[in-house]
Design a protein around this nucleic acid. Structure first.
Lengths: 346, 346
DNA sequence: TTAAATAGTGTGTTCGAGCACATTTTTATT
DNA sequence: AATAAAAATGTGCTCGAACACACTATTTAA
């Protein structure tokens, strides 16, 4: 019933040689109608699926996949990606898939462009990139397209005909999730939406989250809340935020659209009397620490590990097993609090 | 650097034949100290990893894995497992792994035992079972052990030396997660912990969740809450619960320890004025409907699909790639509300 | 000293798909 | 009818690990 049929089996059943069966299976032509009929008849009865192991054994071609992401030493947000990539390396090594990771400086468009040139020199079969810069990405994607190199993206979504796939999260909806949690903690008062980033590369990213967050409160028509947006940048996060705090004594909640919630939590921890609800992103160590201390109430898990893994593995499986590359893979928006955090940190 | 070495490569480098290399790699003896030294020298320099594809191609052995779980037609809780198992079937079919699913009647210990006998007759290499009945499980596990059939379990944890692995959730902690969410929705009042089940097979299951739930409130020392436990069983869920509602007018929240939250939600939906917080388990369709209607506030996702998939895949990978079977795999306790539910329902 | 036993080594085959190439059969052309 | 051309079909090798088996060299027992 579930017997595994081989080409040889089919050949015997149809009374032809395996070469003829092979030609039929691959539409290589040079087959008489009589033989074609006989073989098709057999194929209709049995359920033939080629043995992928044997197929890949013969295949001596080495598939090259390059991954391009910001240097995790500059922005630790990207650190988990390494694990996801490593996982894929281990899994597909045996099949002759070589995966190379390249880093660029997230502060520098030039670095992004030049690293892409380095990758092109490697002439990979596919690339997976974190497209931080919109215009520059479109530029280099065109180059990859001309060289027939498949381009996948993750984390940041960019629209382009030449991009085969995107792995990431629905940021708008994740903003809504944050808002739904915030409205559970608070009943009224002022809520600040804070964008903290070393540089402002992630503008679109953060705005989508803000839109979703605001939309939730708009929709619910809860007039008891007032929402304020605040942008903070590296050297003067503390001074600016402290000033903001003093000016807004009715502040009850903060939604931080990046993984830097710990910076705000650190400042709040020194103010004993303040009870402010904090919701942020990502299970970076410092965030989890503040979660355990009770200063951060919820974190939304963006699961970069899995983003990177899926980005690479869909490519590898495309080459090896001829699987389709899904256009978009949206990862679930995991809600993390102090009680379930330990199950998500790998 | 990342070159893939074959046995032939090693043989050439060490100046011996591939047969000798093979004997060294598998400790099959019959190798002179001189040859051993030469080969070990080469092995220390290069990083040899056998090609798993080639290894499994030769291996014509068919591995049999039987999965035993309650009939999803009797209890739809188990329905998602089928998808997880199907996924594993597809993935490992090419490697000669045959996976068979067997159902038993969750109401009947006799059915559990007899289905196990049917499985034993198939003489599988391993089984994955949902051990609903404690005593009976220990009994049949002993039989499997004598026949050298590997036993894995999922969903329900049972302690036994002969059980190699468990895939599931930390139920105690999931109770705590539920409590943490409940204490966010409510500030005071009475909370009911309701155990609903067709039969009372899952006693331990439900109790663990209750313990965690209660422990959270005990720990937080919030005196404003009072917790009551209620057990409901099939024919008279509605009547009993209605009576309970009338007697307890201060009821503010309900924690349902099984996947039957929709039964309570349905009753509550007819009572317009009541505003009761509802937290339950599992993304069964009816639960998600009430989540979308706003009658259920949170669901905890037990991810049976993945439980079943992992239970089988660890076994398959053990046979095929000689991977270790992890003793316990605890799946994350996913928190679901109306905003992120769509990403979890497959 | 010779036969038998054992240690050590190498060769050859298998798994299934895929493809190059050799061989046979059919059709077209003069 | 003879020959060339084209079409159809079959054979045989490859990939890498695994293992059976054959073979040589050395040791042991009679």
């Amino acid at each position: 019933m579930d017997k595994k049929y081989t080409i040889k089996d089919i050949a015997k059943m149809a009374g032809v040689s395996k070469g003829t069966v092979d030609r039929v299976l691959h539409n290589r032509g040079k087959v008489s109608p009589a033989a074609l009929d006989k073989i098709n008849e057999v194929l209709n009865v049995i359920d033939y699926e080629p043995n992928l192991i044997a197929r890949n054994l013969k295949n001596t071609k080495i598939y090259r996949i390059c991954v391009l992401l910001p240097d995790p030493e500059i922005d630790s947000y990207w650190l988990p990606c390494i694990n996801g990539i490593q996982e894929a390396i281990t899994e597909f090594k045996a099949y002759g898939v070589v995966i190379e990771t390249h880093y660029f400086n997230p502060e520098s468009k030039k670095s992004f462009l030049s690293t892409n040139q380095t990758i092109i020199k490697q002439s990979p079969d596919a690339v997976l990139i974190a497209p931080l810069f919109h215009k520059e990405t479109l530029e280099i994607v065109k180059q990859y397209d001309e060289l027939e190199i498949i381009v996948n993206t993750f984390n940041n979504q960019i629209e382009s005909e030449s991009i085969k796939s995107f792995v990431g999260q629905d940021l708008y909806k994740s903003g809504r999730v944050a808002a739904s949690l915030m409205s559970l903690i608070l009943t009224e008062g002022q809520i600040a939406i804070i964008h903290i980033d070393e540089s402002l590369k992630n503008a679109v990213h953060m705005q989508e989250k803000e839109k979703g967050f605001r939309n939730y409160f708009d929709e619910k028509k809860i007039a008891d809340f007032s929402l304020t947006t605040l942008k903070l940048k590296h050297p003067n996060v503390e001074t600016k935020f402290s000033a903001f705090l003093e000016e807004n004594s009715n502040l009850k909640g903060i939604f931080i659209t990046t993984s830097k919630a710990y910076q705000i939590a650190a400042i709040l921890s020194s103010l004993k009397d303040k009870k402010i609800a904090l919701i942020g992103y990502d299970l970076v160590e410092k965030n989890v620490n503040f979660l355990n201390q009770g200063l951060v109430h919820f974190l939304i898990h963006q699961n970069q590990t899995r983003q990177a893994y899926l980005g690479v593995s869909t490519l590898a499986e495309h080459f090896l097993f001829r699987k389709d590359i899904p256009e978009t893979i949206l990862l679930p928006i995991d809600i993390i609090n102090v009680e379930n955090a330990s199950f998500y940190v790998s």
